[in-house]
Lab assay of single mutants.
Amino acid sequence: EAHFQVQLEQLRSMGFLNREANLQALIATGGDVDAAVEKLRQS
């Protein structure tokens, strides 16, 4: 989780407030914030 701290903060600042969902999306996308946003929008 600490590995994705910067990305988690970016997602939070973009309005994605579900930390667990954000973390799962980042893990699934290897930390790619843009891909994580797409994944979160689809769910």
Rank of each mutant, 00 (worst) to 15 (best):
I27L: 11
R41D: 14
T29E: 09
A25M: 14
T29I: 02
Q7P: 11
D34G: 08
R41H: 05
S13C: 13
V6D: 11
A2R: 05
V37C: 15
K39E: 12
A28M: 05
A35N: 08
V33W: 04
R12Q: 07
V37K: 14
N18H: 12
G31N: 08
E20D: 13
R19P: 04
M14N: 08
N18Q: 14
A21D: 15
F4H: 03
V37T: 08
T29G: 07
A35M: 13
A36I: 01
F4E: 04
Q10C: 04
S13H: 02
A28N: 07
L26I: 14
R12M: 11
E1F: 03
Q7G: 03
A28V: 07
V6K: 13
E1Q: 06
H3A: 09
Q24V: 07
F16M: 14
K39S: 11
A21P: 11
L11T: 01
H3E: 13
F16N: 14
Q10F: 01
D32A: 05
F16Y: 03
L40K: 01
S43T: 09
V33P: 08
M14Q: 12
E38Q: 09
N18L: 10
Q42K: 11
A25C: 09
N18G: 08
L23M: 13
G30C: 09
L23I: 12
E1Y: 04
R41I: 05
S43E: 10
L8F: 10
F4M: 14
R19W: 07
S13L: 10
L40D: 01
D32Q: 13
G31F: 02
A28Q: 10
E20H: 15
A21K: 15
E9D: 04
N22G: 08
A28I: 05
E1K: 12
Q5P: 13
F4L: 05
E20R: 04
T29K: 07
L17D: 11
D34C: 08
A35R: 11
L11H: 00
T29Y: 06
T29W: 03
A2M: 08
Q10W: 02
L11N: 00
N22W: 00
L8Q: 09
T29C: 14
L40Y: 03
Q5Y: 13
S43W: 15
A36G: 03
G30N: 13
Q24Y: 02
L40E: 01
S13F: 12
V33S: 05
K39L: 10
Q5T: 14
E1W: 01
V33R: 06
A36N: 00
R41E: 13
L26V: 08
L11Y: 00
L11W: 00
Q42G: 13
A36W: 00
R41G: 12
A25N: 06
G31Y: 13
Q5A: 10
I27P: 00
G31M: 02
A35Y: 11
E20M: 09
L17S: 13
V6G: 11
A28P: 02
Q42C: 02
D34A: 07
D34E: 14
L11C: 00
M14R: 10
E1H: 02
E9T: 04
G31P: 01
I27F: 06
A36M: 00
L23Y: 15
A28H: 06
S43K: 15
Q42E: 15
Q7T: 04
R12C: 12
L17W: 09
A28K: 10
R19T: 07
A35W: 05
D34K: 11
A2Q: 14
N18P: 01
G15W: 01
L11D: 01
F16L: 15
S43A: 03
G30W: 02
A2C: 06
Q42H: 06
